[in-house]
Amino acid sequence: MDLEKIADIPPAVPGIFTLPPYDKTPPALLGGFCQICNKYYFPKPRYCRVCLGKVDETVLNSEGTVYSYTVIRKKPPLGLPAPYSVGYIDLSESGLRIFCLLDPMAVNQIQVGTAVRLAVGLLGHDGHGAPRLRPYFTPVKLG
């Protein structure tokens, strides 16, 4: 994906991943962290669900392994590619298990246990045809 071209495209969901350019830091998910409870969240909630205290925005380590996944072979929603794939990823460090898109170009290379890292690209639209940036996990080692 040409990073200069995607810089002006809005995110499908604001506030859950870092926006381009990515020349200094690679794309990452934005989560929350409660310092009192030592607890990570994704996405960042308004309040800590344990102490109802303040949650700080934090850039999550966005590498992990695939916990489970599936490939959607019916007509996709939101202009996503056919087929496309989604999964649950176990993130390193935070211990969060999160839902995300998987790399549609790597559908056949992703299995349970595959090491993945976050990428961001032009993927699908907003439901009315306007292009949107979406985060997705891609294999660390592309075959």
């Binding site: 969901v13 489970s68 599936t70 996503l80």
Partner: peptide, 12 residues
């Protein structure tokens, strides 16, 4: 918005 539909949760 990230492609989740009801069936994907059961599939995973």
């Amino acid at each position: 918005q990230l492609g989740q539909v009801v069936s994907t949760m059961f599939a995973m």
